[in-house]
């Protein structure tokens, strides 16, 4: 890994490798159960609604709402963003929620509202790794 990105990076496993591959193409994919219809995240080989293994990948719209957040002042080692930054749970239009960062907004709780509309942006943090971050939808 000949780059200077210091923040924690994921090591994909077979159940979620397609998720990371899609991100590199600037697409946000989640899984959906063909049996019960539930879309879910994180990816796994067993639907968390019904344990079915009959699951498929779907491409999301990349749109959603900010479900909850924190403004992080005291960070772990090598944070991915300069503190204070916004740690965010986003609920996608398709239903699943994922942990991400809210960017393009001042890290001020007074200026951030739960349920505000957000849209994905793709951060190519290394040649191999793209992270999904979200910004307020204009």
């Amino acid at each position: 890994m000949a780059d200077d990105y210091k923040a924690p990076r994921p090591t994909p496993t077979p159940d979620n490798a397609p998720f990371w591959e899609a991100l590199r193409k600037h697409e946000l994919h989640v899984q959906r159960c063909r049996d019960c219809g539930q879309a879910y995240f994180y990816p796994r080989n067993a639907c968390p609604g019904c344990l079915s293994g009959n699951v498929e990948w779907i491409k999301t719209s990349g749109r959603g709402r900010l479900h909850t957040f924190s403004v992080v002042h005291v960070t772990g080692r090598n944070p991915p963003l300069e503190p204070p930054y916004v740690l965010a749970m986003v609920e996608l239009e398709e239903g699943p929620k994922l942990l991400t960062n809210l960017v393009g907004v001042e890290p001020d709780p007074a200026k951030i509202r739960c349920d505000m509309a957000v849209v994905v942006e793709y951060a190519d943090v290394t040649a191999e790794l793209t992270l999904p971050r979200f910004r307020p939808a204009s």
């Binding site: 909850t68 924190s70 772990g76 740690l87 994922l98 991400t100 960062n101 790794l129 992270l131």
Partner: peptide, 23 residues
Amino acid sequence: PDSPPGQFEMPFGIGGPATRYAL
């Protein structure tokens, strides 16, 4: 880094328990 927290939380700067309970 090959566990669910390592894959889906750590890359986004989740920190100590305070950052998590805060959500």
